[in-house]
């Protein structure tokens, strides 16, 4: 099924303050038999510290893909997106918005700020599996990611 060659272990940064949603993402990857390295942070400030390798994230791996919630404590996901896409050293990392919001303004603003996709969080675990399978097949098997 794979179009491009199977990548080695990819790293995905999950930015989500809801531990249950992080767990569902991780369990869905397990369920489809794929095991990218999954890192999670729970706030916008921590996301930027991770990406800029400051403080306790000095040795953090640069992620191949970011899954970003919008409703975060402190710095909001939309602001995190803007910071990533206006930072020349980070802007090439694809960012998929993953949110409870289906608000049209959030959708348009995210794409206008160069989100690489916008997904409304599924309700059931079964739908999480469908969503994570689509993300994995597209971003980790089909697309050529930047180095």
């Amino acid at each position: 099924m794979s179009i491009s060659s199977e990548k080695g272990s990819s790293t995905i940064l999950i930015v989500d303050d809801n531990p249950a949603d992080v767990r569902l993402i991780k369990e869905a990857f397990f369920e489809i038999g794929k095991s990218p390295e999954l890192m999670a942070v729970h706030s916008g400030n921590d996301a930027m510290a991770f990406l800029r390798r400051t403080g306790k994230w000095a040795n953090a791996t640069r992620p191949d893909l970011i899954i970003l919630d919008i409703g975060l404590p402190g710095v909001q996901g939309g602001d995190v997106l803007s910071m990533i896409k206006s930072d020349s050293s980070l802007l090439t990392i694809p960012v998929i918005m993953f949110t409870n919001s289906s608000n049209t303004d959030d959708i348009i603003t995210s794409y206008s700020n160069h989100a690489n996709g916008y997904i409304v969080k599924p309700i059931s675990f079964e739908d999480y599996i469908v969503t994570i399978r689509a993300i994995e097949a597209f971003w980790l098997q089909t697309v050529t990611l930047p180095n």
């Binding site: 179009i3 959708i107 348009i108 794409y111 206008s112 996709g117 689509a134 597209f138 098997q141």
Partner: peptide, 21 residues
């Protein structure tokens, strides 16, 4: 492989993602 690619594009961009209107 074109067909496989289109199916993956469909599943992500047409079935999973919300596109901007």
């Amino acid at each position: 492989d074109y067909i496989n690619m289109m199916k993956v594009i469909e599943q992500f961009w047409f079935n999973t993602v919300i596109l901007p209107n």
